[in-house]
């Protein structure tokens, strides 16, 4: 690995200053993607800014009615070990539990998963489906954008020089949600395809549904699921949701699977995830 310097600022201001002074600087949370990329020579920062000592980035705070504030550096294990968060967002706790193995979850953060902007990121489709927003701060102040608009290309996100992700805000949920991915192993694997789904029900029908997909486009993508609103909860609706997902997917063929297979998986996973989210929505009532 090439030489770099290391700083561990205690507050956001110092972090933004360091990131602004060093245009190639990278923030370090869990490092489970960053250090691998640096070893492979894919990123060559001259400065690593360790953001784990900044209080705001370590916040994990759930407020019924307001939602969840998930600091960008909060490691996965803290999410599933927090009973209030796990109760309010079981799908999020589950995602935190499938990113890497136990050791990875001791370090990796959802914020890092988002910033890394991999098409295959497991948390992003769920965050999109949950309507999450990203709180960003930088030299020209603070801004908030939808997670759905955060990733712009493989490994590229909207952050401008000097900007860092502070937290992810997830609104309160009224229904159910689920992320399902397909991997050839049972753990420690990259999604061949993934589907994040949230749903609210009204009088036994779907009130609204959101669907987002992983690993089938240069970024995680949102599927237009508006046509599902008002649809009855039955197999035809589930099948239709799957078809919408398959139609929206733009997969490529690579070592993880062929394009046709991935499109097929989108339909299967979306259908299964929606069924599971509906069951969760019914249960939460």
């Amino acid at each position: 690995m090439k030489w770099f310097d290391y700083q561990a600022p205690r507050n956001i201001g110092e972090a933004v200053e360091a990131m602004t002074l060093h245009p190639t600087a990278r923030p370090l949370a869990g490092g489970t993607d960053l250090l691998v990329q640096m070893r492979a020579g894919r990123r060559t920062p001259d400065l690593i800014v360790d953001i784990k000592k900044i209080p705001e980035l370590n916040q994990l705070h759930f407020e019924p009615g307001l939602g969840l504030t998930l600091g960008a550096a909060v490691p996965c294990y803290r999410i599933y070990n927090d009973s209030a968060v796990s109760r309010a967002y079981p799908s999020l706790a589950e995602v935190a539990n499938i990113i890497g193995g136990t050791q990875i979850q001791g370090r990796a953060s959802i914020g890092g998963n988002l910033c890394n902007a991999a098409p295959s990121a497991d948390s992003i489709p769920l965050l999109i489906a949950l309507g999450a927003t990203a709180r960003i701060t930088g030299p020209s102040g603070e801004r908030t954008i939808d997670v759905a608009a955060f990733c712009t290309a493989p490994g590229v996100n909207v952050l401008q020089p000097g900007e860092i992700l502070v937290s992810i805000q997830i609104p309160p949920t009224a229904g159910g949600a689920r992320y399902l991915r397909f991997i050839p192993r049972n753990e420690m694997d990259i999604a061949v395809a993934g589907a994040g789904v949230s749903v609210t029900l009204s009088n036994g029908n779907i009130q609204s549904a959101k669907i987002a997909l992983a690993s089938v486009a240069p970024t995680p993508i949102t599927v237009d699921a508006s046509s599902l609103s008002g649809a009855p909860v039955n197999d035809d609706t589930l099948k239709k949701a799957g078809e919408l997902a398959a139609a929206a997917a733009k997969p490529i063929t690579d070592m993880r699977g062929t394009a046709d297979y991935r499109r097929h998986l989108c339909a299967v996973l979306t259908r299964r995830a929606l069924a599971s989210a509906i069951a969760a929505a019914k249960e939460s009532k």
């Binding site: 193995g101 050839p184 192993r185 049972n186 753990e187 420690m188 694997d189 990259i190 690579d254 070592m255 993880r256």
Partner: peptide, 24 residues
Amino acid sequence: YYMDTTGTMRNSSLLDYRMPTALD
């Protein structure tokens, strides 16, 4: 060994080579 047409192994890591884990 998942090779591309140039003879590059595309899965030369223990993540992508996918040996069985305890969970499999």
